[in-house]
Simulated assay, not measured.
Amino acid sequence: MDEPTDPMTALAEAATGLHELFQSFVDAGFTRAEALEVVKAIAVNGQRPT
């Protein structure tokens, strides 16, 4: 019997990670607009938070 395929594609996993990152900034006190700008800068520059 074939193994079930993972329903989370690499793209879906990346989107989930970006949303969790965004939500973490909001939870830390950033406004939604500020959090979006930080996540956008990380995505555009290819940086990873430490």
Rank of each mutant, 00 (worst) to 15 (best):
M1T: 10
D2G: 12
E3G: 11
E3F: 13
E3K: 15
P4N: 06
P4A: 05
P4Y: 07
P4K: 08
P4W: 09
D6R: 09
P7V: 03
P7C: 03
A10R: 15
A10H: 10
A10E: 12
L11C: 05
L11R: 15
L11Y: 14
A12R: 11
A12T: 12
A12W: 07
E13I: 12
A14N: 11
A14D: 12
A15L: 15
A15Q: 15
A15T: 10
A15Y: 13
T16D: 09
T16V: 00
G17W: 02
G17V: 01
L18K: 08
H19N: 09
H19G: 00
H19V: 11
E20Y: 10
L21S: 03
L21Y: 05
F22G: 01
Q23G: 00
S24E: 11
F25K: 00
F25A: 02
F25R: 00
F25I: 02
A28E: 08
A28S: 13
G29F: 04
G29W: 05
G29V: 03
G29D: 08
T31M: 03
T31F: 03
R32M: 04
R32W: 01
A33D: 13
E34H: 08
A35M: 02
L36N: 07
L36G: 07
E37W: 01
E37Q: 06
V38Y: 08
A41D: 11
I42P: 03
I42V: 08
A43T: 11
A43N: 10
V44A: 11
N45E: 15
N45C: 04
G46E: 07
Q47F: 03
Q47P: 01
P49M: 06
P49H: 08
